[in-house]
Amino acid sequence: MANTPQSKKRARQSETRKDINKARRSRIRTFLRKVEEAIASGNQEAATAALRSAQPELARGVTKGVMHKNTVARKMSRLASRVKAIAQ
C-alpha cells in the first residue's frame, strides 16, 4: 500500500491511466471487430470503409502507448491484405 504522498499520487494516476487505456483498447477492438465482420460478409466496399476508419484508431493507440508500433503495423497489413483478397 502507498504510504508517502508521492506514492499515493502515483497510485491515483495509475488508476486513472488504467481506465483511460482500457477504454482506448476497447475502442480499438470495436473498430477491428467491425472490419472482421465486413470481411466475413464479403462486401469489399464495407470492408474497405471499415478498414479506413480503423487505421487512425490503431495509429492513435500507438501514439498513446496502448499498443506497440510493430503490433499495429502487423494488424493493419494483415487486414489490408484480407480486404484486398475479397476483390479477387
Rank of each mutant, 00 (worst) to 15 (best):
S81A: 13
P56V: 12
L51E: 00
K64P: 03
E45N: 13
E57A: 14
E45I: 05
N43I: 02
V83K: 00
G61W: 05
R60D: 15
V83L: 02
M67D: 13
M76D: 02
H68N: 13
R82I: 00
A49C: 08
A85P: 01
P56D: 11
R52A: 09
T48G: 02
R78L: 14
M76F: 11
L58A: 05
A59N: 15
M67Y: 11
R52K: 09
A46T: 07
R74H: 09
R78D: 09
K64I: 04
P56G: 14
Q55W: 04
K64W: 08
L79Q: 02
R52T: 10
P56T: 08
G65A: 04
K64Y: 04
E45L: 07
A50K: 01
G65C: 04
L51G: 01
G61I: 13
S81V: 12
K75T: 14
G61T: 13
A50R: 01
L79G: 01
A73S: 13
S41G: 15
Q44H: 12
R74L: 11
V66H: 07
M67E: 13
V83G: 00
K69R: 10
S41L: 08
L58D: 01
A47M: 06
A50V: 02
N70W: 04
R52M: 04
A54N: 03
E45M: 09
T48W: 00
Q55K: 15
M67K: 08
A49G: 10
K84T: 14
R82V: 00
G65W: 05
L79H: 02
A47V: 06
R60M: 12
H68P: 09
G42R: 10
A85S: 14
K69Y: 03
P56H: 10
K64E: 13
M76E: 06
L58S: 03
A73V: 12
V66L: 09
R74P: 01
A46Q: 15
R78E: 09
A59P: 00
V83S: 01
M76N: 05
S81G: 13
H68M: 10
H68I: 03
S81P: 03
A50F: 02
R78I: 12
S41H: 03
A47P: 03
E57C: 05
M76W: 02
Q44G: 00
A59T: 08
R78G: 09
A59R: 12
A59I: 14
E45W: 01
A80R: 05
R52I: 05
G42L: 09
K84G: 11
K75G: 02
K84M: 13
R74V: 11
